[in-house]
Amino acid sequence: MRYRVRRASRRGPRGPRDHDYLGARAGHRQRRPDVIYPPENRRLALEVAEGGAVVSQFAPGTPPLAGYFPVRNRVIAGLSLGVVVVEAAEKSGSLITAGLAGELGREVMAVPGPLTSLMSRGAHRLIQDGAALVQGWEDVVGQLPLRFRDQVKPVAVPANAGSPDRLGHGQGQADHREAGNDESLLLLRVIGQEPVGIDQIIERSGLAPGRASAFLMTLEIEGRIRQLEGKRFVAA
Rank of each mutant, 00 (worst) to 15 (best):
V85F: 05
P195C: 06
Y37I: 01
G82R: 05
G162L: 04
P64F: 04
D199P: 02
F215D: 00
G113Q: 09
F233R: 12
P33G: 07
E40G: 03
A49H: 07
F58E: 08
P158K: 09
P145C: 05
H19F: 13
I127D: 02
M119W: 12
A123Y: 11
A8M: 02
M109I: 06
A123M: 03
A26D: 07
Q193D: 11
G78W: 07
I36A: 04
R14W: 08
G230Y: 14
L207P: 03
L219K: 13
N181C: 08
A179P: 00
D34Q: 13
R4K: 12
N73H: 13
D18E: 03
E203C: 13
R29V: 07
R226C: 06
E178G: 05
G27R: 09
V35W: 04
F233A: 02
R189K: 15
P145W: 03
A77L: 12
G99N: 00
R25E: 04
T116Y: 09
V141S: 10
G130I: 05
L95T: 01
A212P: 05
R25K: 08
P164F: 03
Y21L: 01
M1C: 08
R106P: 02
P16W: 11
V5T: 07
G23R: 10
V71R: 15
E103R: 08
S163I: 06
V196T: 06
L46V: 10
A77Y: 06
A101S: 03
P39F: 06
E229M: 10
F148Q: 06
V54F: 14
K91T: 13
R25Y: 14
Q173E: 14
S94H: 07
R31I: 15
G102E: 10
F215T: 02
F58P: 10
V75Y: 15
S92N: 07
L216Q: 07
P60F: 11
E103T: 00
R10G: 12
A156D: 02
P164N: 07
E229K: 15
P112T: 13
N160V: 02
E103H: 03
